[in-house]
Design a protein around this nucleic acid. Structure first.
Length: 517
RNA sequence: GGCCCCAUCGUCUAGCGGUUAGGACAUCGGCCUCUCACGUCGGUAACACGGGUUCAAUUCCCGUUGGGGUCGCCA
């Protein structure tokens, strides 16, 4: 496993998994790499390692999801690790937001904050001793060195070069490489990057990637305050936590070669790598707040179903034939790294909403009980508290197919639960006019005499009444709808009446008639 | 600019040398209809360009163009 120094920097296979050679490209491999290749690894361990510097980004959720799916499918472990080594920006509140967001999504972790595990602690600032140990080992072996160049001096050099040519490439010149600085002087620890050779790895999504070492520089492993930088901390943690596959966004692809060099120097077998194409804003720019909701909590607050969020995200960059709608279980079963695309994509709010709609429509995807549990908070937000669950369920059945989110659902069934519906002014002015007053009263009178308050009974009773009065349903449907619901768009009239019940229906028809005056 | 990566309808994608280039969202039109939806039927719409390889390229190779990532004591 340990490799000799002479091998560092030469092009060689860095991954344990061989791939077929010759003319076969990764997508054309005849052995269906996914299962065959991965079944060999007894227990995959993957991780999601966010830095707690704000809300949980929708792009981060996708990364978490793919890792989680893989862990669930293979029976492996999904590890959550908090990378809080940027003390300037990391906050405990952000950690909590991330934890809450993942729990809301249902992306539960097997090891990590608040659940523990055998490889903890799972927060980087609590693992400083481990990083120090690894860093000292590298320094002792001459694979890393202490550098006393100040940030200010380096920044000045960088600025000078950029001033001459904005596109110039500044790389640390290696000033301290041959000097033996003592531990006592303020210093960072830098890695000795081989000048020759290149790093090669086979990405589970992108296939073979080769990067020349000459493009690297002696990057910093540990800051002057002893806190590790991203590449070093991540590698040390991935090693000590036994991570077997690192799946992350493509923006991290540039970090893989230096990390591989680190595994090499530490004499460790690197994990596999899988990079995911980027999620871009519709404009093609990086997805940011300017382009709408990027924080999961916003979607939660907008009444999105978490499984639907995951469904949309899964289908972004991954596909399974023509299937668009998936339950979580189906996702777990169908997911394959090799079915991931490589091209970046643009986030599409419309399609996202359409997927949400599919989930909310389907009792298979959102059972009545789950739907009830999820919509109630949004009803409460509208001041509708302590409602009768049975009645809410009836109401749900009538608004389900016309609600894309729980917010829309709550809005759509609002009228059922008030003494009087909230009246839309335009609707009232248009339909509750004097000419309709008598119709509404007459209808109420007929319905009052009715026995057996069912949709079928209502339909036939109303049909008879229309016949007698020589009316068409079109003549009274909208006025009645406005009287009953306060608006011009609603579930079918008879459905509404059934859920409302006889007395509320009569009361609303009559008070609607009054408003016609 | 260096290094890395990518390229099929407007968008997400299927495609694994021979297809009328398929699906979904969006869009347009019809049907259904008490409204809004749902459902349903149908239409418009794509292989960036140029060279190879091959009997045959959307598909394989190279180049061009275009796009993206990254070049920190951020992650």
């Amino acid at each position: 496993m340990a490799s000799s120094e002479s091998e560092i920097g030469t092009t060689r296979h860095l991954l344990p998994v061989e791939r077929s050679r010759g003319m076969l490209s990764r997508r054309h491999s005849p052995i269906g790499r996914g299962l065959l290749g991965d079944a060999r690894m007894s227990s995959p361990r993957v991780r999601f390692a966010p830095s707690p510097t704000g809300y949980l980004h929708i792009g981060g959720v996708r990364t978490a999801l793919f890792n989680w799916l893989w862990a669930r499918q293979t029976g492996g472990a999904f590890v959550l690790r908090i990378e809080d080594t940027d003390q300037e920006r990391s906050t405990p509140q952000s950690v909590q937001i991330i934890l809450d967001s993942l729990r809301w999504l249902g992306l539960t972790w097997d090891e990590g904050p608040e659940v523990g595990g055998p490889h903890g602690p799972y927060t980087q600032m609590q693992r400083l001793a481990t990083y120090r140990e690894f860093a000292e080992r590298l320094v002792a072996q001459g694979k890393a060195y202490r550098c006393t160049c100040t940030k200010e001096a380096l920044d000045a050099q960088r600025a000078a070069i950029k001033a001459r040519d904005p596109k110039a490439n500044f790389r640390y010149p290696g000033t301290c490489r041959t000097q033996k600085h003592s531990v006592s002087s303020p210093h960072v620890v830098r890695f000795v990057t081989p000048a020759e050779g290149s790093v090669r790895y086979v990405d589970k999504v992108f296939g073979e990637v080769v990067t020349p070492n000459a493009a690297q520089q002696d990057f910093v492993l540990v800051r002057s305050d002893g806190v590790p930088l991203y590449n070093f901390g991540a590698v040390v943690d991935d090693i000590t936590m036994g991570i077997t596959l690192v799946a992350r966004g493509r923006d991290h692809m540039v970090n893989t070669p230096p990390q591989l060099l680190l595994y090499e120097a530490l004499g460790e077998t690197p994990p596999e790598f899988a990079h995911l194409p980027m999620m871009l804003a519709p404009s093609g720019e990086k997805l940011s707040k300017r382009h709408g909701a990027v924080s999961v909590t916003e979607y939660r607050d907008q009444g999105y179903a978490p499984e639907a969020v995951l469904n949309y995200l899964a289908r972004f960059g991954w596909s399974h034939g023509d299937q668009e709608v998936f339950s979580l279980d189906e996702l777990v079963a169908a997911f394959r790294w090799e079915a991931c695309g490589r091209g970046d994509g643009k986030f599409d709010t419309k399609k996202f909403l359409a997927i949400e709609h599919e989930h909310l429509k389907s009792p298979r995807l959102q059972s009545d009980d789950v739907y009830l549990r999820r919509v109630v908070p949004f009803l409460e937000l509208r001041g509708l508290c302590g409602l009768d669950e049975a009645k809410v369920k009836q109401a749900i059945a009538t608004v389900r197919e016309r609600s894309r989110t729980f917010v829309e659902a709550a809005e759509g069934m609002d009228f059922y639960f008030r003494g009087e519906p909230v009246m839309d002014e335009k609707a009232r002015v248009k339909f509750l006019v004097p000419a309709n007053a008598l119709h509404l009263l007459s209808l109420a009178e007929r319905l009052e005499a009715m026995e057996g308050w069912t949709a079928e009974g209502l339909e036939s009773t109303v049909t008879d009444w229309l016949l007698e009065r020589k009316l068409h349903i079109r003549d009274v449907a909208q006025p009645a709808r406005v009287a009953l619901t306060g608006r011009t768009a609603s579930p079918g009239l008879f459905e509404v009446m059934v859920v409302l019940g006889q007395s509320a229906t009569l009361a609303r028809l009559r008070s609607g008639a009054k408003r016609c005056a």
